[in-house]
Amino acid sequence: MSGSVLLKQVREAILAPPTIFPWSDDKASIGPGGIANLELQQMPVGFNLAHIPATPHFQSGVGQFACGTPKSIARPLEEEVYDVLADAKIKTRLIGNHIPRDWQVRLFGQLDRLHDIEEWELGDRPMRKESYHTFLSVILSVRPSVRPGLGLSHKGDLLGTWGEPHDRITLEFMPSARLRWTIASTSDGQLVRSAGDAPASDLEKYLAPFDPAHWWHRSAER
């Protein structure tokens, strides 16, 4: 038993708010690739270095240059978009063994289209990185076989939609592993809407009355 990992304690540790995903710590994902951060400039190359010890041989500036630009420096929108997309794609690749390859390709295409700034209106903002981290953690928990339609809120939070117009759920993936959901369903011929807001880790609990599997997997008939 010595040195063994007791998973109950690990689960409790990981489900403790505010994070359920390792890279949801804002300080640890400043730039493209989320590689290192400014407080940890000595970090070596690594896409998930919040969890990987530094090694002196890879200290020399590698993490520093890979981590992008300090947030305090004003940057052109194009650079912000590059930064956000790079971060999202690398985070996705890191858990790529758990997401079908064809979905990854589609997902990257969706993210690129959402960030086509030539189509943007004044005031549109790039996706918030922390929002995407929440999205990934939910996808890994729910593992939907139906791929969602994606959008961006005015704050830069990712929106995911499953279902048909008369029976649809929209999730807004917010930083700090929180979710907001809106459900549009039909009852006695009337369109009924409901909404809620909760930690992402409690999603299944709060959605249980709605039988969410029929959105994620289109398996259950209603």
């Binding site: 690990v10 994070t19 995903f21 390792p22 090694t55 002196p56 041989h57 858990i95 758990h98 890994l140």
Partner: peptide, 15 residues
Amino acid sequence: LQINSGVFLPPPVPG
């Protein structure tokens, strides 16, 4: 050669 090993906490993949 430097080797790091350990447990990712929290785990990157639920489950």
